[in-house]
């Protein structure tokens, strides 16, 4: 089998203990995926597996075998930005930029979760299939991604803008 990373197949590592984070960052030099704690507390290492967000530091690379992994490099490039990336620049949703790839990957998946009707701790009606992404809903759903520079307002503004554009 193979792990499809940003559209390209790579063999799973021989050592099954290798984390997805280390596979991406150390072995493939895809350093857009960041590391802030290596223990699931900061969200800097967030990537998408089949469109769902995971903390790559807590995921073994072999768990992605046969699946499709998207990293920040797969979402867009500096020359060809993903709408979220463009909105982050517009709303100044970062300062040092270190938490940023994780924030953007998490946001991309979060928008899909909301579109699929997945409730959060703040959703009052758990049976609804229409989630209204209020500011608080987005804040709650993004709370797994820490930012120490304090770019929180800009991050949420950027996501709300893209969420607004997606709304039918």
């Amino acid at each position: 089998m193979a792990i499809r990373v940003n559209g390209e197949d790579v063999p799973p590592p021989d050592d099954i203990r290798v984390s997805l984070l280390d596979l991406l960052r150390e072995q493939m030099n895809l350093s857009g995926t960041k590391v802030g704690c290596n223990q699931g507390a900061c969200g800097a290492c967030t990537v998408l597996i089949d469109g769902r967000r995971v903390l790559s530091c807590l995921t073994l690379a072999v768990q992605a075998d046969g699946k499709s992994v998207t990293t920040i490099e797969g979402l867009g490039t500096a020359e060809n930005l993903h709408p979220l990336q463009a909105a982050f620049i517009e709303h100044d949703g970062f300062q040092c930029g270190y938490c940023t790839p994780g924030q953007i990957c998490a946001a991309a998946a979060m928008l899909e979760e909301a579109a699929a009707g997945m409730p959060s701790y703040l959703t009052s009606d758990l049976t609804t299939d229409r989630i209204i992404l209020s500011r608080e809903e987005v804040q709650e759903r993004m709370s797994g991604n820490l930012c120490r520079c304090g770019a929180h307002n800009g991050i949420i503004d950027a996501i709300l803008e893209v969420a607004g554009e997606r709304r039918p």
Binding site: L30, G32, E79, F88, F94, P101, I104
Partner: peptide, 21 residues
């Protein structure tokens, strides 16, 4: 003015210290 290094940072292309091959 938006940050001049914005595109690199949001695309994960800004090279931080541990990322030198």
């Amino acid at each position: 003015a938006s940050r001049l290094d914005g595109p690199l940072k949001v695309a994960g292309q800004a090279r931080f210290a541990a990322e030198v091959v």
